[in-house]
């Protein structure tokens, strides 16, 4: 599903990624670990098309991301790849329901189908009672659940999660991990989870470790 080959990226003299190669299959959950500055976030940015590598290739379902123009990259993020952030990044002017619905509106999904999916996702993340709450009325854990529901809304093949539990307490973090595991299994969505926490690895089939821009370990 995802194949990365000899990916390199540098900012001036500073090499951030050095010939990184790895792959993921459909529905696979992979933890990406490593110290600060090891290149995890840059790798995530390159996969989502926000940043462009200097060399190497990224293929998603056989389609090369490197050759895509800005519009195609936007469509890729709209249709195939979703991101979950450490700080949730919900749109503050929208209710919880609208936040989840928003990406589906972007891809112009019919209203009936949208409503059906929103109800299903709200139920999935167990927030039926808060559907019309604004983001600032939700707790951190609830906001991350909304972010997960939003990420799943367009049925992407890959979800990139950047420290998804990094801003949550242990109990909430655990419940979010359980949720990620559940939805990934149910929707057969692959997940690449960037983390510093060993706890995250418990829901992953593989753990890839990075250091100084290189993959130093890839264990199942």
């Amino acid at each position: 599903m995802l194949a990365i080959t000899d990916l390199s990226k540098s900012y001036g003299e500073n090499s951030v990624l050095r010939e990184v190669s790895f792959s993921m299959t459909t529905g696979e959950r992979v933890a990406l670990m490593g110290p600060s500055g090891s290149g995890k976030s840059t790798l995530l940015n390159c996969i989502s098309g926000i940043d462009r590598p200097n060399s190497g290739s990224i293929e998603l379902n056989g389609q090369s991301i490197g050759g895509m123009d800005e519009r195609q990259l936007c469509e890729l993020r709209r249709d195939s790849i979703s991101t979950i952030f450490q700080f949730f990044h919900l749109l503050p002017t929208l209710t919880m329901r609208e936040n989840i619905e928003f990406p589906m509106q972007l891809i112009r999904l019919a209203e009936k189908e949208r409503k059906k999916r929103v109800d299903e996702l709200i139920h999935e993340v167990q927030l039926d009672h808060r559907a019309d709450a604004m983001p600032d009325e939700l707790s951190g854990g609830e906001r991350q659940r909304v972010a997960i529901a939003r990420a799943l809304a367009t049925r992407p093949v890959l979800i990139l999660a950047d420290e998804p539990t990094g801003n949550l307490d242990t109990t909430t973090g655990e419940s979010i991990l359980d949720l990620l595991e559940t939805v990934s299994g149910r929707y057969q969505t692959a997940m690449l989870l960037v983390t510093h926490s060993k706890r995250v690895t418990r829901i992953c089939q593989r753990t890839v470790s990075m250091k100084d821009g290189r993959i130093v370990d890839d264990e199942k």
Partner: peptide, 11 residues
């Protein structure tokens, strides 16, 4: 918010 929109695939 604009950054989020970019991440959601808005050109």
């Amino acid at each position: 918010e604009i950054a989020i929109l970019r991440c959601l695939g808005v050109t």
